[in-house]
Amino acid sequence: MDHEEKLPRYRVLTGPDDATFCWRVSEMLDLGYQLHGSPSVTFNGDRVIVAQALVRPE
């Protein structure tokens, strides 16, 4: 079983809306994931928090 077979087919990434979050999403896209829907954005009183669902096709 290779690394890709161990990855879940569905993931939701969350975190502050910053470059680190964008890099995390980019890494998942490089692994073959595709964006699933639009990102969700909220404000926690201190900073903007974003969530993005991703799916990996079979």
Rank of each mutant, 00 (worst) to 15 (best):
S40G: 09
T20I: 10
V50G: 07
R47I: 13
C22S: 13
R56H: 09
R11P: 01
P8D: 02
F21C: 06
V48F: 08
T42C: 15
L7Y: 04
I49S: 13
P39W: 03
V41R: 12
R9Y: 07
T20Q: 15
L54W: 01
I49N: 13
S38T: 11
P16V: 15
K6T: 09
E4T: 15
V50R: 10
E27P: 01
T14I: 12
L29A: 03
L35T: 07
E5V: 10
D18E: 14
Y33M: 00
V41I: 10
G32R: 09
F43S: 06
L13F: 08
V41L: 15
Q52S: 01
A53Q: 05
G37R: 08
F21A: 05
R47M: 14
E58V: 13
R11H: 06
V25E: 01
H36I: 03
V50C: 08
T20C: 14
R11L: 15
G32P: 02
P57Q: 00
G45N: 04
L7A: 06
V25G: 02
T42K: 14
F21I: 05
V25K: 04
L54V: 01
D46W: 11
M1C: 11
F43T: 09
A53R: 03
F21H: 08
I49V: 15
G15V: 10
R56W: 02
K6R: 10
A51R: 07
Q34K: 04
Q52C: 04
Y33N: 00
V12S: 03
D2T: 13
W23A: 08
Q34W: 01
F21W: 14
M1Y: 02
F21E: 01
R47F: 11
N44S: 08
H36E: 14
R24F: 02
S26A: 15
L29T: 00
M28F: 05
P57N: 01
R11F: 09
T14D: 11
L7D: 07
I49Y: 08
L7S: 06
F21M: 06
T20G: 15
I49E: 15
V12H: 03
P8V: 07
P8L: 04
V25L: 04
G45I: 08
D30V: 10
V55R: 08
R47S: 11
S26T: 11
G45L: 05
A19F: 11
K6N: 02
V25H: 00
R24D: 03
R24G: 01
G37D: 11
G15L: 09
R47E: 15
D46R: 13
M28E: 01
V25W: 00
